[in-house]
Amino acid sequence: MDNLESHRHYQIVEKAIRFINKNFNKQPTLLDIAASVHMSEHHLQRVFSQWAGISPKRFLQFITKQAALDALQRTNSLLEASHTIGLSGSGRLHDLLVTCEGMTPGELKTGGEGVLIQYGICLTPFGEAVLGWTLRGICYLQFIKDRQKTVIDELYRQWPNASLTLNTAEAAKKANNIFSPSLEGGKIHLLLKGTNFQIKVWEALINTHSSQQLSYSQVSQLIGSPKASRAVGSALANNSIAYLIPCHRVIKHNGDMGNYRWGLERKTAMLAWEQALLE
């Protein structure tokens, strides 16, 4: 399924998740959910299965609070066993191989002077996004919540002295590589723009994989700063490379999804989509 079709299906899935979250206490049936997106049960079943690879019923099991608590417990067991959270093996079968480097203090000080950034609007399985990259790697990936211009303006604000060029065709190719990796996974390099602490948090998340969800305190333990949960939250809020720096995998210790700068429905969809890939 190409990103255009996946994008269309995601819009339906997003509406369904919004309805489920709003009516969770009423335990809506598949018929109720289908009606909320103006579809038959059969049609919704087909869209979910094409988008996520699993049935709506199975998908819904992934987004329950109990599923989140179970994922946190698995991660906690791993943290108790090892200080290193990155794993090899079948759990990483569908994961991208993401590597990264931080900008130097000098580069940060000049606001990207001398850096050539290409960018474009692209379709993804989680909606429209603006993707930006340099010769050294991807430096920007933000989903569009309201207006394209707002997200593009933010790219220019973050890199005030860089030379920016629109390249929509290449953005589409890169998005396809990111969101439609082969079974062996793709290889992506990131150029990170942040403080040392922020980069430390982002690198820790890059080394997680799709079967993991972490609480803020677990991330702070992971980076060796057990009392820095609030600072971890701030680092996540300043992440400008969505999905590839998987801050969507960080949830509250009680199983609630918590905040996400690109929308709670998108965060929920990402977590369930990743779990579905593992199946």
Results as ranks from 00 to 15, higher is better:
residue 190 L to G: 03
residue 175 A to K: 02
residue 211 S to L: 10
residue 207 N to D: 15
residue 196 N to L: 09
residue 145 K to C: 12
residue 175 A to R: 08
residue 161 N to L: 10
residue 188 I to F: 11
residue 181 P to V: 08
residue 177 N to Q: 15
residue 137 G to P: 06
residue 123 L to W: 10
residue 131 L to D: 05
residue 157 R to G: 09
residue 197 F to Q: 04
residue 161 N to W: 11
residue 217 S to M: 08
residue 126 F to N: 00
residue 185 G to E: 09
residue 170 E to W: 07
residue 168 T to E: 14
residue 139 C to Q: 09
residue 200 K to E: 08
residue 183 L to Y: 08
residue 142 Q to H: 08
residue 202 W to C: 01
residue 160 P to H: 11
residue 145 K to H: 14
residue 190 L to A: 08
residue 137 G to R: 06
residue 121 I to N: 03
residue 166 L to H: 05
residue 201 V to I: 05
residue 222 L to K: 01
residue 133 W to I: 04
residue 153 D to F: 00
residue 212 Q to W: 13
residue 167 N to R: 06
residue 183 L to M: 11
residue 129 A to P: 05
residue 154 E to M: 02
residue 119 Y to W: 12
residue 152 I to M: 08
residue 209 H to R: 10
residue 160 P to S: 14
residue 138 I to E: 06
residue 149 K to P: 12
residue 171 A to H: 00
residue 141 L to D: 00
residue 189 H to C: 05
residue 149 K to Q: 15
residue 184 E to T: 08
residue 171 A to E: 04
residue 148 Q to M: 14
residue 159 W to Y: 08
residue 170 E to C: 04
residue 123 L to E: 08
residue 170 E to K: 09
residue 196 N to F: 13
residue 160 P to R: 11
residue 215 S to V: 04
residue 139 C to D: 09
residue 187 K to W: 15
residue 173 K to D: 15
residue 128 E to V: 01
residue 175 A to F: 07
residue 132 G to W: 03
residue 136 R to M: 08
residue 183 L to V: 07
residue 213 Q to N: 06
residue 199 I to M: 10
residue 216 Y to L: 04
residue 224 G to C: 01
residue 138 I to M: 03
residue 118 Q to F: 02
residue 163 S to P: 03
residue 121 I to C: 07
residue 173 K to M: 14
residue 188 I to N: 01
residue 201 V to Q: 10
residue 177 N to F: 13
residue 145 K to N: 14
residue 161 N to Y: 04
residue 187 K to T: 09
residue 155 L to T: 07
residue 122 C to W: 09
residue 200 K to L: 15
residue 166 L to V: 05
residue 164 L to D: 11
residue 219 V to W: 00
residue 161 N to T: 04
residue 120 G to S: 13
residue 141 L to Q: 03
residue 199 I to T: 01
residue 192 L to M: 03
residue 172 A to F: 13
residue 177 N to W: 15
residue 186 G to K: 04
residue 205 L to W: 14
residue 154 E to G: 03
residue 127 G to N: 09
residue 190 L to M: 02
residue 205 L to P: 14
residue 134 T to S: 09
residue 177 N to C: 02
residue 141 L to R: 04
residue 215 S to N: 11
residue 217 S to V: 01
residue 148 Q to F: 14
residue 172 A to M: 13
residue 192 L to K: 08
residue 129 A to F: 02
residue 167 N to M: 05
residue 146 D to K: 07
residue 159 W to F: 12
residue 140 Y to F: 06
residue 165 T to C: 02
residue 147 R to H: 14
residue 132 G to N: 02
residue 133 W to Q: 05
residue 181 P to F: 07
residue 193 K to Q: 15
residue 203 E to N: 04
residue 166 L to E: 14
residue 173 K to N: 15
residue 143 F to Y: 13
residue 142 Q to G: 09
residue 200 K to C: 12
residue 156 Y to P: 02
residue 192 L to N: 06
residue 125 P to M: 03
residue 216 Y to F: 05
residue 223 I to S: 06
residue 221 Q to I: 03
residue 147 R to S: 07
residue 138 I to H: 05
residue 197 F to M: 05
residue 214 L to M: 06
residue 214 L to N: 00
residue 125 P to Y: 13
residue 202 W to T: 03
residue 205 L to F: 04
residue 195 T to P: 03
residue 158 Q to K: 12
residue 164 L to S: 12
residue 220 S to N: 07
residue 127 G to H: 11
residue 214 L to H: 01
residue 150 T to Q: 13
residue 215 S to T: 04
residue 119 Y to E: 12
residue 207 N to T: 02
residue 219 V to P: 06
residue 221 Q to G: 04
residue 148 Q to N: 08
residue 138 I to Y: 11
